[in-house]
């Protein structure tokens, strides 16, 4: 029971922990806990992978279609500048 309470308390800090931005004392607490809590270790590992996976989806970046850009410049009365950009 006390064990579960620890897991819950640390949960809110795990996101910063995987980013390496958690305070030192919190990191120490987390690491002490992880040493004997397998469940939390799995949560940390999979959370880290989650962040990694999300960052891996980025390459297919959406680019605004040319017609959308044309219409935007028209609406803003900026047609004269339509061809100035890349």
């Amino acid at each position: 029971m006390a064990h579960n309470e620890n897991c819950r308390q640390l949960l809110g800090s795990l996101s910063e922990y995987v980013d390496g931005t958690a305070e030192e004392s919190i990191c120490a607490d987390i690491e002490r806990h992880l040493a004997d809590c397998n469940n939390c270790r799995v949560v940390v590992d999979t959370l880290r992978r989650t962040v990694y996976l999300v960052r891996s989806t980025r390459p297919e970046e959406t680019v605004m279609p040319a017609e959308v850009r044309d219409r935007l410049y028209k609406v803003l009365n900026l047609e004269d500048y339509l061809n100035s950009g890349g």
Binding site: C7, R8, L11, N39, V42, V43, D45, T46, R48, R49
Partner: peptide, 10 residues
């Protein structure tokens, strides 16, 4: 709380 504990990180 995390409900699912499956080690798919591996």
């Amino acid at each position: 709380e995390p409900v699912q504990i499956v080690d798919w990180a591996q």
